[in-house]
Nucleic acid binder design. Structure first.
Lengths: 195, 195
DNA sequence: CCATAAACGGCACTCGGTGCAACAAACAAG
DNA sequence: CTTGTTTGTTGCACCGAGTGCCGTTTATGG
């Protein structure tokens, strides 16, 4: 079978390039045409790599979700739901210290750019889905039931609040903030589940 | 002083008309031009009434925020923070039974249309601001501190989860769901505030 | 009747995003 | 070497949201 014409660049490469341009000139003022030109591809081709300008920023989000899902699935059944969730999210957000500056830039972009802030909501739906599914399974409920959904929403809220705080203080520790945020959740104590 | 040419329509009128068209043909497939034409105004004029197509759906959001703020301010100091917040939000979301169908349509539009779901995030920021400000004042902290922000995020998450559940079940009661959602919050017990 | 204030709205433009159809580059089989 | 197939690239034309500019309309007040 013929292998066809090789791709001229890659999602990863394009993403790095875009993050640079966004950081330098701002997200809004960088047009798709700028990105395409910088990458040496046509405007039309850019949209073969990413469905929208917004999507450039989120890396491989689906892969990340799969990882979170796997972590949750790996939680021993005797660990309380909220505790396991907290641990999974903490582990999920752990990253090598040398990757931190890059991550800060990316998250600052996501959390401080209106267009991306808005777009994130759509991405977050997937994250909530993973959490709700896990919670439902642990609680013997369906993912669309109130409790799993509520927990997923609150968990996401906690994570986002932690991230915002982390971004606002360059000396803060993300893990500590996430830990604090998730410890404040008591939605569905496994003992006394809210009906 | 001359009063100038009278407006040909009004925000409220335009909003009603738009909600009808959105409900009938869908949000995405209704263009601004359609709205303008139906309202008997020019496309350009539409953007004098609303800064964007998205914004048509949110009614007078600023007024609503002011109302919430007022309710929170009116909370007696001896009522615990979370309790007062819950009561304020419940009261805020109370509406006459005859207004419910309309409210359902509007909220379904907001929560089920991707573009609006995304855009809502930006509107919600104001809501969170009001809550964070109130919490900060009650806790002797600054609005941008972690605890008020965390609480605001979690409170919003609770409200949205309740609304989604409400929309999913035509026989459900919004007040009950909101009450349940907010009772699950224990972030900042006034006694033992998380530091 | 004229000045002024305020809303209307056409025009042209930018930018994100899409459908289509032509083209280019790789490889494999003859 | 040629030809066919596969797959990626790209230009073109188009749509819809949103904006800046500027002339026009319609009211009121003198």
């Amino acid at each position: 079978m013929g292998q066809g014409r090789p791709a001229v660049t890659s999602k990863g490469e394009l993403e790095l390039l875009a993050l640079e341009l966004f950081a330098e000139h701002g997200f809004e003022r960088t047009t798709v045409e700028d990105l395409a030109e910088a990458a040496g591809i046509g405007r039309r081709t850019f949209f073969r790599y990413f469905p929208s300008k917004n999507d450039v920023v989120y890396g491989d989000f689906d892969a990340a979700l799969s990882e979170l899902r796997a972590r949750l699935r790996a939680t021993p059944p005797d660990v309380p739901l909220l505790e396991g969730l907290r641990e999974a999210v903490l582990a999920f957000n752990e990253l090598p210290p040398e990757a931190e500056p890059q991550h800060r830039v990316r998250m600052a972009l996501v959390l401080h750019t209106p267009a991306l802030q808005a777009h994130s909501t759509l991405r977050y739906a997937g994250w909530r889905g993973v959490v709700a599914e896990h919670a439902a399974q642990r609680l013997g409920l369906r993912p669309q039931d109130f409790l799993p959904q509520l927990l997923a929403h609150q968990a996401l809220a906690s994570a986002v609040a932690a991230y915002e705080q982390w971004l606002a203080h360059s000396d803060s520790d993300l893990a500590t903030l996430l830990d604090q945020a998730f410890r404040s959740l008591a939605v569905a104590g496994d003992d006394a589940p809210v009906r």
